[in-house]
Design a protein around this nucleic acid. Structure first.
Length: 671
RNA sequence: GCUGCUAUGGCUCAGUUGGUAGAGCACGUCCUUGGUAAGGACGAGGUCACGCGUUCGAAUCGCGUUAGCAGCUCCA
């Protein structure tokens, strides 16, 4: 029997043979599908091990793991260990592959543009990039030239070799490359050896791992050329970043490019306009989408659902507070100091007696409602909810369809509570989000992020390190109690407290925050919000800031992408379209529509004098869940011929039967 | 805000080296009363995003503005 991966006979060597160690034989457990234990001479490289296991594997090998640690193919085995050969199928193998591709790109640029200075060139989620400092950004034609040079380098099948130098030698080697010098100096501070990879006439500072030679990268495509700041700071020079992707086979590259094109067809920014959910206007301005009747209806469906859920199931009370306020309010909240650039300020501070600003959040407004009364500890928690329109003056390059806009509406809420109520209320906020996301079908696409402050950037935040430690510790504790999986991110907190951000990726793979739950131990003090505790003392409450559905515009965008425009029945702006075949059926068709509307279904009648096939085609393209065809036969039978968007012609049935099935589908919120 | 790309009827797009605009869909009128994804004829519709320049002449070339796209940075 042959090994399914190796194509060789699997064999096992008894552990007892370890006594042969003085012959400098090491035992290597090779982890593939079904473990193999084999002996190699000490110093054998991973590449040689892969070769010993089969030529095919050696060719496919991109990197390896020795005892779980990712390493280069050139790494020798020095002692008994477990080795896992990584191919393009493995995440880390893929990284090594793309990373090598980025070196090839850099080598091509070096050959074609000798004056170019090199910054960094890592692997990313779907390929790689390399940042170059060149006098002018590459044109599309130049990218093609570079691609051709890359093909040459691949064909030359140049071996990559690893080189380790002490800092002074490293600096000497890279003396003409200012960005590399900066990087070397940083590493030198840590007293490490500096590692390089050499491929022919090209040398790059790099930790690896890398493939053995340039020949393995059969299909490379440079996908974009854009600007990117050196070290990610806008204070630094903008470099020319070339993005690319690469695959072991040309067919895989083609499949990838086709998949990217396919994903674009789901882009809400295209589909949402096509299906007339929203539009924009040059006269109105950037980041100000207009929800058209279908978009507005979807907004209303979601909003009613969320408001009812919050009020009847989660004990919220609603507020409706102003969309603007004097600057005084924002000075107390801290927004004037920490967020003024992001606000739309009405008036001129120098000239006008009073300056107003459109609100970028709801917090201080709902706090005014709280401050209007004296509160007992018995009143808490108080849960304020509001469907709240906000205005944020985003930089001009940031706007994107419905995902990033300047005016938007969120399901905002603030919970004022006693410290001992924090965990229960926090959990309930998370549960509310998860229930909503389950109902709308996005639950499986979410990830969770604990967003922390940046202790090295105290300008950006209010409060003391002690308070931050406390609030972050509280949040982490609760999340751990809940057994939630989450990542932690430094510098992503609100200026007043840490956040649990619920993240989602759009069709382009770009991640955004959909919902957030924040713990705030600071703003109650700023606003002097208190309650009288059981002991008669005034105390500061804790506050949770949260959204439940989040930003409606953004959620609508992600729903359109998730379902490629074919929204579940309960969310469809138009659920049923009645299609009379001729004028004679108009009255009956309107009668059917009336019966459906009486049960709360959203129905239209297409009475145009068009062929039935034409009407069906239009309704199908508009993704209407059900079409009811009405001809003489249906009138005679007193029924409707049902056509489902998903399953096509379902045959004739009594109107009442269709209604009960449709209502059941709406109520079940079936996807 | 930064880098690059883009802007032609409601939509999707043609428009060759500068010589005052085309198609399909949609829209209107008429004919067709049609059975599960496009029936036919005719018609109307454009200051080629906006402004300034170069030129005898600009959709086409240059500059600026506005808006859209990708990326960077930012995102309470």
């Amino acid at each position: 029997m042959l090994h399914p991966v190796l194509g060789v006979k699997p064999f096992f060597i008894p552990i007892a043979m370890r006594t042969e160690k003085e012959r400098k034989i090491v035992m290597v457990k090779i982890c593939l599908k079904g473990d193999v234990v084999k002996e190699f001479e000490q110093g054998t490289t991973v590449a040689q091990i892969a070769a010993a296991l089969g030529a095919g594997l050696a060719k496919a090998a991109c990197a390896a793991k020795i005892d779980g640690k990712v390493c280069d193919l050139r790494t020798p085995v020095l002692a008994d260990c477990s080795v896992e050969i990584l191919t393009f199928e493995d995440t880390d193998g893929k990284k090594a592959f793309w990373h090598t591709a980025s070196h090839i790109l850099a080598q091509a640029v070096q050959r074609l543009f000798p004056e170019a200075k090199f910054a960094i060139g890592p692997a990313v989620d779907n390929g790689f990039y390399y940042d170059f400092d060149v006098p002018t950004s590459f044109t599309t034609d130049q990218l093609s030239t570079i691609e051709a040079e890359i093909a040459k380098i691949v064909k030359e099948d140049i071996p990559l070799e690893k080189l380790e130098l002490d800092a002074p030698d490293a600096l000497e080697k890279m003396k003409d490359q200012p960005y590399k010098v900066e990087l070397i100096n940083e590493h030198a501070g840590k007293g490490e050896k500096i590692s390089f990879y050499v491929q022919g006439d090209f040398v790059d500072l790099c930790a690896g791992p890398h493939l053995m030679s340039t020949g393995s990268i059969k299909a490379v495509k440079l996908t974009a050329c854009t600007g990117a700041y050196w070290r990610g700071s806008e204070k630094n020079k903008m470099l020319c970043r070339v993005y690319g992707t690469a695959f072991p086979k040309k067919s895989e590259l083609e499949a990838y490019l086709a998949a990217v094109e396919e994903a674009k067809k789901r882009d809400h920014n295209i589909i949402g306009r096509q299906l007339k959910y929203f539009c924009t206007s040059d006269y109105v301005g950037q980041g100000l989408p207009h929800l058209m009747p279908k978009g507005a209806k979807l907004f209303q469906i979601l909003n009613r659902y969320v408001q009812d859920k919050e009020e009847y199931e989660y004990g919220y009370v609603m507020t409706r507070t102003p969309l603007m306020a004097k600057s005084d309010l924002y000075k107390v909240s801290g927004h004037w100091d920490h967020y003024k650039d992001g606000m739309f300020v009405l008036g001129d501070e120098e000239k006008d007696k009073e300056v107003f600003a459109l609100r970028p959040m709801t917090c201080p407004f709902q706090y005014q409602v709280y401050l209007n009364d004296m509160h007992s500890y018995r009143d808490l928690p108080i849960r304020y909810g509001e469907t709240s329109t906000l205005f944020r003056n985003e930089a001009s390059g940031e706007m994107h369809g419905l995902i990033r806009v300047r005016q938007f509406t969120i399901s905002e809420g603030h919970l004022v509570l006693r410290p001992e109520q924090l965990e229960e209320e926090f959990r309930s906020c998370v549960r509310l989000i998860q229930e909503i996301m389950t109902d709308i079908g996005l639950i499986g696409d979410l990830t969770y992020r604990l967003s922390k402050w940046d202790p090295n950037d105290t300008e950006k935040y209010i409060g003391t390190p002690e308070m931050w430690n406390e609030s972050e510790g509280l949040m982490r504790g609760i999340l751990d109690h809940m057994g939630m999986k989450y990542t932690e991110a430094v510098g992503e907190a609100a200026f007043y407290g840490p956040k649990l951000d619920v993240q989602i990726k759009n069709v382009h793979g770009k991640e955004d925050t959909l919902c957030t739950v924040q713990i705030d131990l600071m703003l109650a003090r700023q606003f002097n919000m208190t309650y009288i505790d059981a002991d008669g003392e005034k105390k500061y409450p804790y506050i949770i800031h949260r959204t439940s559905l989040g930003c409606y515009e953004r959620t609508i965008a992600l729903l359109l992408e998730k379902y490629a425009g074919a929204l579940p029945m309960w969310l469809s702006p138009e659920q049923v379209r009645v299609l009379p075949i001729g004028d004679n059926q108009s009255a009956y068709a309107n009668d059917v529509a009336k019966k459906l509307r009486a049960k709360g279904l959203r129905v239209t009648v297409d009475e145009r004098r068009e062929k039935i096939g034409y009407k069906i085609r239009e309704a199908q393209l508009e993704k209407i869940p059900y079409m009811l065809v009405i001809g003489e036969k249906e009138i005679e039978a007193g029924g409707v011929a049902v056509r489902s968007r998903k399953e096509g012609d379902k045959g004739t049935m009594p109107v009442e039967d269709f209604i009960s099935a449709a209502v059941a589908e709406v109520e079940s919120k079936a996807k």
